[in-house]
Amino acid sequence: METKKLCLALYTGSVDKLTAAGIILSGAAAVDMQVDIYVLLMGARAFRKDVGDDSGKLHMAENASLKAEFLESLKSLNVKTWVEFFREAKSITDVKIHICGLAGKVWGGEKLGDFIDLADDICGIGAYIESAQEADVNLFI
């Protein structure tokens, strides 16, 4: 079976959109897609070691006043955190997470070790363009 590739430009650092990205990643993992994630600007903040899935440090992209209700509902439905979704997808299929060098610097991260252990490398935007050109599915979240 031919391996399909998903390229995700992950701009968001919001808990609602990161959760959505995690759910999409799960779908990709279920069908053994190869996944490249390029973490851009706000996304790199969420990958900082002191942020991750600490929902208190993550904002909402949509309707901030619904954050508590949103998080409570996810919990009651036994839905994983965005970090758990990403980690599980990595354990099932080939998922590589690349932190944009500029995005990292914006949030004080210079080295791979400055980010949570999901990140695989620090890259430039050329790598994203190349990956996007080769991908079967391209998403910007």
């Binding site: 759910i23 779908g27 993992a29 279920a30 839905v79 599980e88 099932i92």
Partner: peptide, 14 residues
């Protein structure tokens, strides 16, 4: 039964 989408799909996959 204890998980919502995409839980069952991933459980099946594993």
């Amino acid at each position: 039964r204890g998980t919502a989408c995409p839980g069952p799909l991933l459980e099946a996959k594993k």
